[in-house]
Amino acid sequence: MRETWERRHPLLQLDQATLKQLLQPALAGHSIASAELLHAGRNNTLYKITAEDREEALVLRLFQDDPAACKKEVELFNLLHARVPLAEILQADHEGHTYGYPYTIARWVEGILIEDILAGRAQADLAEVGYSVGATLATIGSYTFAHPGFFHDGLHLDEPEEETLEEVDEAKGYLAYLSSCLFPGKAERWLGAELTARLWTLVTENAHLLQATAGSRSLVHADYGGSNLLVRQERGHFCLAAVLDWEFAFVGSSLFDLGNLFRHEWLLPNEFEAACLQGFVQHGGVLPPTWKKITKLFDLINICTFLQAPESRGSLVGDMITLVRWTLEHWETY
């Protein structure tokens, strides 16, 4: 669905001389054979680069939306790459000294996006794909930190406030954030008064369920979905080839990532979802009794954040309104 969303920032058009300047250390003296401006993603600019006399391609990624995310991506690669499939980062400029935007250069990873498989644009064994996606999510969640929070300056977390050292009231913080997204006249502007009231009633009546995740200190990708998951076939079996784009990562509950993954549940084949949950649990992931309601509550954070957009950004706002209606209409089935 994201292909019909408008970008947050215009694509950066780089000339050949600029590309050569940025890429030269990674190219090790080789000339650029081709530079393809990619249209994947909606926040940053990416180029696929091939070099003369080199078989492998590279990806140049310029961080437009959040320059600080560059350092976070590099440090997460260093932390995770031994156990989580990632695109190998070869070079990075955290500060943007060379061009004005921070950037990374990584190896191109051949594979199929899971969104293409689920949309029927590519074929794969759905059970194998799902199992690998769930198992990898559990592995990501096995990386824990001192306390929940958001990263800054790489992987540093702010020290928790004194009152958060005791058990946190998850519902209070959750409702405060959703309220800031909805009111006054923010997401409410797109949803309308009646739909906003129904949504607010649902979250206030169910936010207590989030207490099951209190104190979770797992690494969360925060955009763990089909557009960021590449798979390929190795030794006759499909497996995850790379988890892409870690710019939104934070510390919290892995159920946040499950909510993202299962967002468009009506598009997910049963065998994919079942295998994903099996892989997640068999590799250490934990599903509390009300896990599905919790994942939907978590994903409403993403949905309401998107709905703060001042413009409709193509189909984005309409897609989010559809998701709110779907959640309200199907809540009792979760």
Rank of each mutant, 00 (worst) to 15 (best):
E3V: 11
W5N: 08
Q13K: 15
K20P: 09
K20Y: 13
L22Q: 07
L23R: 03
Q24R: 09
E36V: 04
L37D: 10
A40M: 07
N43M: 11
N44A: 09
T45I: 05
I49F: 13
T50V: 09
D53R: 13
R54F: 09
F63K: 01
D66M: 06
P67N: 06
P67V: 07
A69E: 02
L76D: 01
F77T: 03
N78V: 10
L79A: 09
H81I: 02
V84H: 02
I89R: 00
A92I: 11
T98L: 13
A106F: 05
A106Q: 14
R107P: 03
E110W: 09
L113F: 13
G120V: 06
A122R: 12
A122H: 12
A124K: 05
A124G: 06
G134E: 03
T136V: 12
T144Y: 15
F145P: 01
F150L: 10
G154I: 00
H156V: 09
H156C: 14
D158I: 07
P160M: 03
E161G: 03
E163F: 13
T164W: 11
E167Q: 13
V168A: 08
S179I: 05
S180W: 11
G185I: 06
E188Q: 14
E188A: 13
R189S: 08
G192A: 12
A193F: 13
T204N: 14
H208D: 15
A212M: 08
T213D: 10
G215K: 10
S218Q: 15
H221Y: 02
A222Y: 07
Y224R: 00
S227C: 08
L230N: 00
H237Y: 05
L244V: 00
A249D: 03
F250K: 03
V251C: 00
S254C: 08
F262R: 08
H264W: 10
A274R: 13
V281H: 04
Q282F: 02
G284H: 12
K292D: 12
T295S: 12
L300Q: 01
I303T: 13
L307C: 06
Q308Y: 05
P310E: 11
V317A: 06
V324D: 02
R325Q: 14
W326C: 06
T327H: 08
H330A: 04
